[in-house]
């Protein structure tokens, strides 16, 4: 019986889980403070909102660590359901409501009528969208838009566009390879790698989900496009 011996991975995962719970408390306290201050002073609030965005990023990283743990232990598998997309997006965006309004970001969401429902894992997709939106909000100047539609060859297309500086060259050349992950460039690519895993878990009739990164030819902002079969 090797039962009393915990693997290092399990210990780390348990600790990460614990840290994430603490962070959750910190976040909610922060939200409370921001909410109170927002009625009076401007500048302090703005810097607190920035702090709050960074804690969101930490939270995303922790989520990824747990996600990788589950991937490695084969616990992560998509549970595909027929999901009403408006509900999914309302849930995702409600997390960012306060941040968006504090940072004066002009946000728009449009869901095409034919994209009412789609077969996907709502929990994993929500996590992926949270991750992408956190980054977009961090880098955008003043605008953020989410467009949801169904393409002619029956893919669900989710496009997130901002008006920031766009993706750096290294990220545009990113090709779903572990070797693309490195610590020198500052952006580790781990998030992208994880998102790619999640996207490709959505699979039917030989078609797998994927995403594309590009920069807007007009204003140079970043465009993240997710395709799910």
């Amino acid at each position: 019986m090797n039962d009393d011996q915990l693997s290092l991975e399990t210990i780390m995962a348990t600790m990460v889980h614990d840290i994430k719970n603490s962070l959750g408390l910190i976040n909610s306290q922060l939200d409370g403070v921001i909410h109170k201050l927002s009625k009076t002073s401007g500048e302090e609030v703005n810097s607190l909102v920035r702090v709050r965005l960074e804690t969101s990023r930490i939270n995303n990283d922790l989520m990824h660590m747990l996600g990788f743990y589950r991937l490695r232990t084969e616990l992560l598998s998509p549970v595909i359901e027929d999901v009403f997309l408006e509900d999914l997006f309302t849930d995702v965006i409600s997390r960012f409501d306060m941040t968006l309004s504090e940072l004066n970001i002009d946000f728009s969401l449009s869901i095409a009528p034919e994209a009412d429902c789609w077969f996907l894992d709502p929990v994993l997709t929500e996590g992926m969208l949270n991750n992408v939106l956190t980054n977009s909000i961090r880098y955008t100047h003043s605008k953020l838009s989410v467009k949801v539609l169904v393409t002619e060859d029956q893919w669900l297309k989710i496009q997130i566009t901002d008006d920031g500086e766009g993706y750096p060259e290294s990220m545009l050349n990113w090709h779903d390879e572990v070797s693309d992950i490195n610590f020198k460039t500052g952006s580790t690519g781990l998030g992208l790698y994880f998102n790619q895993q999640i996207a490709s878990m959505h699979e039917t009739n030989g078609r797998k989900g994927y995403f594309e990164l590009e920069n807007d030819s007009d204003n140079g902002g970043a465009i993240f496009t997710l395709y799910l079969p």
Partner: peptide, 23 residues
Amino acid sequence: AETARIMVMGALEYSPDDYLAKP
């Protein structure tokens, strides 16, 4: 208070109709 739905779902089986993250 558990923020990750995935964790909550693991812990809760007699499925409630919905979850609400606190606060």
